[in-house]
Amino acid sequence: MNPVSRSVQGQENLNPDPSSGAGGSGPLLSAAQRSNLLPLTAAGYAWWRARSLRSLGADFTLEREAALFRALCRPQAGQDWLDVGTSAGFYAGVLARADCRVLAVDLSAPMLREGAKREPDARIDWAQLNMERSDLPPASFDGVTVGATLNETRGPAALLAECARVLRPGGQLWLMYLRRTGGPLQAVFERPKAGGLNFPDPAWVGRHLPGLIRTDGLSAGAVQFERYVKGTDPQGAHGAAGRGVWETL
Rank of each mutant, 00 (worst) to 15 (best):
L136V: 02
Q186N: 07
S134Q: 05
C163W: 05
A104V: 04
R49H: 15
R113M: 04
E132M: 14
E119R: 07
L160Q: 00
R64E: 13
F90S: 07
T61E: 02
A122W: 08
P75Q: 02
A46Y: 00
Y177M: 00
G171R: 01
A148V: 14
Q186L: 12
E65D: 11
A77W: 06
S134F: 03
R165I: 00
A96L: 02
D142F: 06
M131H: 06
L62S: 09
R123N: 06
D80R: 14
A164D: 09
A43Q: 13
F141C: 05
L150K: 04
W174C: 05
R64D: 11
A66Q: 10
L82Q: 04
W48T: 14
S52K: 13
E119M: 02
V144P: 14
V166G: 00
E114L: 01
L160Y: 01
L185V: 15
L40K: 11
L178D: 05
T41Q: 12
L159A: 01
A46P: 01
M111L: 06
W47Y: 08
A96I: 02
L185M: 15
V146R: 04
D121K: 06
G147M: 10
W47I: 09
D135A: 14
D59Q: 13
T181S: 11
G89K: 03
T61C: 01
R113Y: 02
A50G: 09
P169D: 13
E65T: 13
F60I: 08
Q79A: 07
L56H: 09
P110I: 00
D83G: 09
A139F: 15
L175Q: 02
L107G: 09
A98L: 03
L56C: 07
C100N: 05
D106A: 06
T181G: 13
A122Q: 11
A58P: 04
G170S: 09
R123H: 05
W48L: 15
L56V: 04
K117G: 10
L95E: 01
Q128K: 07
V105L: 06
V94D: 08
M176D: 08
P138Q: 10
A158Q: 15
V188M: 06
Q128F: 04
Q76W: 12
R179E: 09
Q76D: 12
G171P: 00
S108A: 06
A88P: 15
A122F: 06
V84A: 05
L178K: 09
S87Y: 11
A127M: 06
L95V: 02
L175H: 01
E65I: 11
A71I: 15
D125V: 03
G78K: 08
R165Y: 05
G115S: 03
P75A: 01
Y177F: 14
A157E: 14
D80Q: 15
D121G: 04
R64F: 11
A96Q: 02
V144K: 08
P138I: 03
L53G: 05
L178Y: 12
F141K: 00
L40W: 10
L112T: 00
C163V: 00
A42I: 00
D80N: 15
L107E: 02
P137R: 14
R165Q: 01
I124K: 00
Q79I: 00
T149V: 13
A187Q: 15
S140R: 03
W48D: 11
P137S: 14
F141H: 06
L150W: 08
G57S: 03
E63P: 13
G155H: 14
V188L: 12
C163A: 09
A66L: 07
G147Y: 12
D59S: 13
G143N: 05
E132I: 09
P156V: 06
Q79K: 07
V102N: 02
T181W: 12
